[in-house]
Amino acid sequence: MDAGVIPISNTQLALSVILVLIAGVISAALRLELLKPLLWGTVRTYLQLTLIGYALTYIFNINNLILIIVIISLMCLVASRTAVRGAPCAGRYSMFLGFFSLWTSTFLVGTIVMVLIISPEPWYSARIAIPIFGMILGNSMNGIALSLERLFSEVKSKISEIETLLSFGASPWESVRDCVKEALRAGMTPTINSLMVVGLVSLPGMMTGQILAGADPQQAVRYQIVVMLMIAAAVAIGCIMLVLLYYKKLFTKEDAIAHYVLNHE
């Protein structure tokens, strides 16, 4: 059995444009007006991934711990921007909380995976660390974004309950506890669902990639289990951190609901 990667040549890569053309023809025939974004998207995919390919080769060769930390921190920064988009005051403070929660959960879980579970040589080996941290980050980001969005929509829809509780002397926490629970549930549900159906409905991308790269499916499965569990942990930690740090911001220093929460559309 040939257990190596089957390389894709430049010609073969160019042929993949056929796939876009099929989608393009359908779009044009149905006047979906998707041709332009489709073509632009294709160009960007080629460019971005080619550049990332070079960048990764470079980073893997240097394999420097500080460089890896800087890169992952930068990735956290970009991700935190997306994660706090659902907040009505996407100010610096939101960004900071988002970044802090993402960074902490990602590094905590990622380091455990690197040091204790995969233990490459050296333990921070960029070839392992960058993809692992990337996967954690992508999922935490989505979880946090969902949680935060849900937190605000819950508080808005339950505003009269919250104010009634406040007017009886409830603490901020007592008044929004149910909303916080809902927000955490919203953030973690996709991850929990994927734990339930993984392997039944779809084969995860990482595992598929490993199999295509010639890995033994049973080894790929082991990796996938680690990845799924680390994602679940990171999403849970990230969501809890952010929501617990954030809920106080819904209130004024007088412990009343802040104006911006009420006016947010």
Binding site: L165, F168, G169, A170, S171, E174
Partner: peptide
């Protein structure tokens, strides 16, 4: 009963 569940009460 609801307000009686609050810490302040």
């Amino acid at each position: 009963k609801k307000p009686f569940a609050l810490k302040i009460k």
